[in-house]
Design a protein around this nucleic acid. Structure first.
Lengths: 127, 127
DNA sequence: ATTATATGCAACTGACAGGTTGCAGTTCGT
DNA sequence: ACGAACTGCAACCTGTCAGTTGCATATAAT
């Protein structure tokens, strides 16, 4: 009982929103979802940089780690390479927060909330 | 057209997701939405801190500025005080991105996308 | 065995975010 | 007019984030 205040969130929303706050991370996530799993080395050659030089593999690795920490991706070791798979399920948490945030939104989106729970760890089968 | 690469987003999504990535900011936003407009000074006394000391007014002001920059709040001067009002309309952009991101999500959420546009624009007009 | 490819780890840099303090300028109330 | 309350601005501190480089290590192919 040392703590009786509302206590600032500190939940997964910080990691989720934080992960999505970076354009490179959003690019990677969409890339993994739409084109399937890929390795950090491979992604390094694909990510747009807004500069002329491409991003380093290590930079990508760090971004991927943040996505993994947020629960949005999962590394799978295949021989000497590590293949990252998108696991977009936690996005439902974000949508959930958004729909609970607006006053009229609540009215408008209430009926969808139940369906969002049916989203699974699909993204792309690990195979 | 000197640029033929996909060019990393750089859009409002960075500011939107970035604004929502902080628990204090989420608290303020919800506070403004649910309890109505308030001044920075007033909010300073309400925000949970996870520490024993409350946040400074200046800290709140900075948070509010970030929300304003993201289009999620709007300052209204009333005499000597500045009352901040929530303008949650841009959240539709976030939901929109989320619904366009998943493959099956698209199927599942496609029918809602049109309705999201009906959320009223209370203050997105920075111009 | 040797070489090429891919990941893992650590140190380092530059920039920005969150937060504080102090002070100056405005507006309200009496 | 005078003091109280509120906002605005600027400097400053600290930690974290994005990104890089260099090197070590593990696996695959020949």
């Amino acid at each position: 009982m040392t703590d009786e205040r509302p206590e600032v969130s500190r939940g997964p929303l910080d990691e989720l929103f934080g992960a999505l706050a970076d354009p490179t991370r959003r690019f990677i996530l969409q890339r993994l979802i739409h084109q399937g799993p890929a390795t950090a080395t491979h992604l390094a050659g694909e990510c747009p940089t807004s500069r002329d030089a491409p991003l380093t593999r290590q930079a990508i690795v760090k971004h991927l780690q943040i996505l993994v920490d947020a629960g949005l991706a999962r590394p799978v070791r295949v021989g000497r390479e590590v293949r990252y798979t998108a696991t977009p399920a936690p996005l439902a948490t974000v949508v959930s927060w958004l729909t609970e945030t607006g006053p009229r939104w609540d009215r408008r989106m209430e009926k969808f909330r139940g369906r969002l729970d049916t989203i699974d760890d699909q993204g792309t089968s690990t195979a």
